[in-house]
Design a protein around this nucleic acid. Structure first.
Lengths: 106, 106
DNA sequence: AATATATGCAGGCAAATACCTGCGTAATTA
DNA sequence: TAATTACGCAGGTATTTGCCTGCATATATT
């Protein structure tokens, strides 16, 4: 998995919105996704392309339509390999700062 | 919390590396962080500024030095409000795609 | 006081990004 | 078959981004 592509894909609010829409109703067509997106179809296509490159969605062609499905695996992996590390040390990390702030006052 | 700033801050590999360095040793100065960063000090400063704006780090001045500390809270919140939603529906989301693929074959 | 160290601030520039318009193609429907 | 629908592809452009150089300021050391 390419961490960087996943993070960059998540960096845009429009793309996060697309993931949200798909989370609410999986397997939507490009046209359906466009209806709620306040930008041109071609722009939505570009965003969906980046999401697919990051492996965050998968697509299936059905006739002239293209269906979009969420792939939750990369998000889970990013969490496992990235977020959890900080979560584990959460209390001690916060303590470091607090201790330094105390050190200044005295 | 500003989700967008957090995601954008995480979108750059250099900034993720800075967070990694601070996770390994919290409370480093700008100079110390620069030693491992293969870019000019001023660029590192810019990255640290974005991380601070996203509230991912906090800083404390001590004399002529500036110490940097991780703030793990926004990462945890992003996980809670964002990643977990997809994790919960993980199996069913994957099933949607699988079912559609089966539908095509038959 | 003079020098060295640690950081701040301003501006410039090439590349990436996020939109757009215009046109082409494949699949359905009348 | 003709018209419609759903989507793909190729640029064009204004903005943002990430890096740099050059200079200024504040603290520490000799």
């Amino acid at each position: 998995m390419d961490d960087d592509k996943v993070f960059k894909a998540l960096a845009d609010p429009g793309r996060r919105m697309l993931l949200d829409r798909l989370c609410a109703r999986n397997g939507q067509t490009l046209g359906q996704l466009c209806e709620t997106m306040d930008m041109k179809r071609q722009s939505v296509t570009q965003h969906l392309g980046l999401l697919e490159e990051a492996n965050l969605i998968s697509t299936v062609r059905r006739g002239r339509e293209k269906l979009h499905f969420i792939n939750p695996v990369p998000l889970y992996e990013v969490y496992e390999r990235w977020i959890r590390k900080f979560e584990e040390g959460r209390l001690s990390l916060l303590h470091d700062l607090k201790r330094e702030l105390e050190r200044k006052k005295t």
